[in-house]
Nucleic acid binder design. Structure first.
Lengths: 100, 100
DNA sequence: GCCTAGTACAACCATTTGGTTGTACGTTAT
DNA sequence: ATAACGTACAACCAAATGGTTGTACTAGGC
C-alpha cells in the first residue's frame, strides 16, 4: 500500500483517477514510458486497492479508490496519536518535577 | 518518504521511536536481522526525514520526527480533497439534470 | 591502558522493481 | 470480413532493495 504510493508515476495515476475515470491508454499517453509500463503501474495500484478497473467495451476504466486513501491516513493518524501520547507523558513528567 | 514507509520493519522503527528515543542497538535487538540491516533501515528513515539521530556518548539516539508524518498526511489530505471535488462536480451534474 | 560495546561502512548477494519489446486476443469501426 | 485499437501477458534487462559478513574506529568501564 505505501509501497504502491512510493512511486511518483503511481501517485499521479491515483491523483488523476480520483479526479475522473480514465482508460489505461489515456493514462499511458500522459507519461513518457511504454503502454506496458503504465499497465504495470496500474496493476500494482489495483493490487494495493488504491485503484479499481472495470471493463467498458474493449477499454478498462481506471478509477481511484478513496477508501484505500483513508486507510493510509488512518495509519498515519495512529502515528500522530502515539506522538501525542509521548508528549503528554513528558508534560506529566515535567509537572511532577515542578512540584518537588 | 512513502518509500521509507513501505517497509514494515521501518514503520515499526518509526512507531517505536515516536513513543520514545532508542539507540540503534536497542532497535536492532528487537528485530530478527543483523545490526547492520537495522542500521541501514534507520539510515533510510533518516534520509527521508522520518527519524533523527543524535549522538550521546558512543550511542546514537534515534527519535521519530512527527513533522515528516504530518507532511505525509498532508499529501493524503490533498488526495481526499481531489476526491471531494469530484463528488461535488458529480452532484452538481445530477442537480442540473433534475431540472430538465 | 586495555578490552568491550556501539557504531559506521564497504563488499557482496539474491530478489524485487521499473522499465523494455514482442506476441496474442477480444472489441470496434469501416 | 478485416483492419485497427485497447489490453493482457511473457520474457528479458539494469538498477535498486533488503539482507549478509567482515573490518575499522571511537567512547566507556574496569
Amino acid at each position: 500500500m505505501f509501497r504502491a504510493l512510493a512511486d511518483a508515476t503511481r501517485r499521479d495515476i491515483v491523483r488523476r483517477t480520483l479526479i475522473a475515470e480514465a482508460t489505461v491508454s489515456e493514462l499511458a499517453d500522459s507519461y513518457d514510458m511504454s503502454f506496458a509500463a503504465v499497465q504495470k503501474h496500474v496493476a500494482v495500484l489495483e493490487e494495493a486497492g488504491l485503484v479499481t478497473k472495470r471493463p467498458r467495451g474493449r477499454e478498462r476504466m481506471v478509477s481511484g479508490n478513496p477508501e484505500a486513501i483513508r486507510r493510509a491516513q488512518t495509519l498515519l493518524d495512529q502515528f500522530e496519536q502515539i506522538w501525542r501520547a509521548r508528549i503528554d507523558r513528558l508534560d506529566a513528567l515535567l509537572d511532577s518535577e515542578e512540584n518537588e
